[in-house]
Structures are given as C-alpha cells and as structure tokens.
Design a protein around this nucleic acid. Structure first.
Lengths: 181, 181
DNA sequence: CCTAACATGTAAACTGTTACATGATTCC
DNA sequence: GGAATCATGTAACAGTTTACATGTTAGG
C-alpha cells in the first residue's frame, strides 16, 4: 500500500494539530506549499481514502448547523508516516520557474530587457522571502510550545534558497549594469 | 495567441542552435530541466503546432533513409520569444521536493532517523550539484563562441540553490549531532 | 555484428488545478 | 447588513508522463 506524497502531507498536518480539511488547506498555504503544493480538490478525497484505509479516523464535529468533520491519526496512520520518513527512495528536486527559464533564454532580448528579466526574478524571490520570513515567528512559537522544531528548520531551507537566488540576481545586475555603462 | 512555457522552451532552443525535436530533447535534459522539464510527448506535437502557427518553419532534412525534420525560427517566432521575455506576468516559484517535505515532518521520527532525513537531502543536492557543475565547461564554451551567455548564468543560479541547501543541511547535521552526542 | 545513439511520433493514463456550488457563522 | 472566514465537496479541464511503436545509422 504505497501512498502519494499528498497523503503524507495530510497525515503530517493532522499530527501537527490540524483537525479538518480546511485546517490542512490553510496550514499548507503558509508552510509546505514552498516545497509541495496540494489543493482542496485533493484534500477532501484523500481524507476519505485515508479514513477508509484506517490511517485516520473522522468524526462529526459540527458546530450547530455548521458542517465540520474532524480527523485524527490512528496508530496505523502514525506508523505509516514514520515509515515514510525513513523510507529510501529517489528524491528528485523538481522546480518549475518561468523566471529562471526567461533568464536562460535572455540572450534573445536587448541588454536592458535582459536586466529587467533579472530584476523581476529578484523581485519575485524578495516577495517569496517576505512571506517565508513572516512565518518565522509563528513557527518558532510552535517549536517552543513543543509542537515540533522541524517546521522551523524546513523554513530555514526555503529562506536560504531564495536568499541565494537574490544574491545571484543582485550580483548579475551589478555586472551587467557595469558593462552597459 | 498565448502560448504555454513549453512553447518558449522550443522557440528558445531553436534559437540557440537546435534543429530537430531530438536536439531539443537532449538540450533540455542537460539545461532547462533544472527549472522547467518537458518530455518528448510534448515536443513533437508542439513543433507541429508552432509550424502551423507560423512561428517556426520545418523542412525535411533526412539523411538518406533516416527521417529527420529540421526547424528554424521565423521572424514571427523570434518576435514572440522576445516579447515573452519582456512580458509582465506572475512568476511563481514552484518546487516539488519530497526531501524538504520529509524534513518538515521529521518531528514524527526518532532523532537518528531525522538526522538521516537531512543527510539524504544533502546527498541528493550534492549529486544535483555535480550534474550542474559538469555543465559549467560546455556552457562557458557556448558563451565564448558567441552562442549566448545567459545559459551559463542560469546555471549559476541552479548551482547557488543547491549549494545553499547543502550548507543548511550540513549546519543542521552538526547542530543535531552535537545535541545527541 | 551489435550496441548506442539518432529520430519521430501516438494513445492511454494519470495528476492536478480551476471554477463552481453551497451554506453557516463571526466580526465590524 | 455585509464582508471575511469557516467549511465541504465535485465536475470539467489542462497539462504531463509512461509506455508503446518503429526504423536508421555510426562506431567499436
């Protein structure tokens, strides 16, 4: 019974305290989306499947008339999560980035336009960095309250990636600006 | 007439000297795949479409009995490529990385298993770095022969990303080893 | 002679997103 | 009263990959 990474995102988020599909969605938006995105349309069917497979259990937690279904990990689900963490498998690093793609082909453009391509790449990464930095405080809090230190650590990795992209872009801008006078 | 990024990969590669679908496939494998992958099954249909749209022209270039179809950019195609480079659009940085995902959820594992997760992440990025570094010489050559400098520049960005991931992982390994040691 | 590389293409399957549909509750 | 947030779910669509199908030619 092998599960897609999406399933482990859900198991992992339930372990970190999320209860509903909606909780998971919000948690992903501010954390794992930097290295693994999942959408609503994947979450709800996957919750149903994991429940059916006995990795999680759901119960009705409606507030009055408001529908709400809360889930928690079963021992079997926790075991599956832990085993996945230690499972040896290929770990491809897949990136889709139009900004870097444009940089690669920037020889086709005029020098000024090429510099602009780099500027936009840097600006994009600066924005991403801002979002990531805004998560530093909440995830440090989570770590101190005993909720786990690794979310903050993974955040550090994401920050490092964008910082290095910004550094390369800034260097490049200086180089190219110097050339064109 | 808006085209998917895949179309620009093809236009860009033709501009850099590729002639056939096969050429494009090989070029992508050693270059753009680090920030944008495309497969055979996308290349050939897209070549046909771009030809139909007048952005490229194909002619038969068979060697004896060996089928071969060579394409080149039309002025319209080159214009489309240049306009795309300057086109303002959102530039999402999408990453799919199981290694970072496991790092995020590593609190569920025993400390030693968590360190192993980091080691594997580092080892993965070291391998990727090796592949990227192997491209430095050929892409520097391309730049010196007047074939364009930006492929080498984009490579620098890829190298920087993995170097920063390796640095973070090494730091982390030392931190965690000191704690458990 | 045989293997690797050259070369083109398609069908089926799979994955994932966008948009839609629906409605309750809380806060201003 | 209205907007934002909480909350669940599906259908249609778009994009991508895998596997298959086929054949040539250069080099060891």
């Amino acid at each position: 019974m092998s599960l897609p990474p999406t399933a482990y995102v859900i198991l992992g988020m339930l372990r970190l305290g999320a209860e509903t599909g909606y909780d998971i969605k919000r948690a992903v938006e501010v954390s794992t989306r930097f290295f693994w995105t999942i959408s609503e349309a994947q979450i709800y069917p996957m919750l149903a499947r994991l429940d059916k497979d006995g990795l999680i259990v759901g119960h009705d937690a409606s507030h009055g008339r408001r529908k709400r279904r809360a889930y928690e990990l079963t021992p079997k689900g926790e075991k599956a999560l832990i085993e996945w963490l230690s499972f040896e498998e290929p770990l491809p690093f897949e990136v889709r980035d139009v900004a870097l793609l444009k940089l690669f082909f920037a020889d086709a453009a005029e020098p000024e336009a090429a510099i602009e391509v780099i500027r936009r790449l840097r600006s994009r990464s600066e924005q991403e960095l801002g979002v990531l930095r805004a998560q530093e405080a909440p995830s440090a809090e989570l770590a101190e309250s005993g909720g786990g230190r690794f979310p903050a650590i993974a955040l550090r990795a994401g920050i490092a990636v964008h910082e290095s992209l910004i550094a390369v872009a800034a260097e490049l801008e200086a180089e190219l600006a110097a050339e064109s006078g």
